[in-house]
């Protein structure tokens, strides 16, 4: 089977979303990710794979990851604030343990 190129429009998709989708798609055995001015391109280069199925999965996964990234933009700051608040009493763990040797 020849190489298959799957193209994503940079206006809609980021490299990070595509990288996460590739990571999550276990059927991808070998691929290369490249970029042109307007597109991000995944080239599937494992000859033993059924590329149509993988393409379908990759596209669905990329959509989900793009959504996750835009949601993270929305609530990322509040998440940092919430977690920071939760662990604020332990941020200076070194001082606490040096003093009390509480391990």
């Amino acid at each position: 089977m020849a190489e298959t190129q799957i193209c994503f429009d940079k206006a809609s998709f980021t490299l990070l979303a595509i990288q996460r989708a590739v990571y999550d798609t276990k059927e991808v055995v070998g691929c290369a990710i490249s970029q042109s001015e307007e597109q991000i391109i995944i080239t599937l280069n494992d000859e033993n794979q059924k590329h149509e199925d993988i393409e379908k999965k990759l596209r669905a996964s990329t959509l989900d990851h793009q959504l996750r990234l835009s949601l993270e933009k929305d609530f990322g700051t509040i998440r940092t604030a919430l977690v920071s608040k939760a662990i604020e009493s332990s941020v200076d763990l070194n001082a606490l343990t040096n003093e009390g040797r509480r391990v």
Binding site: D64, D74, F75
Partner: peptide, 10 residues
């Protein structure tokens, strides 16, 4: 309303 942080899975 504002969204609070979450993960999702279909």
């Amino acid at each position: 309303y504002s969204l609070l942080p979450f993960n999702f899975e279909k």
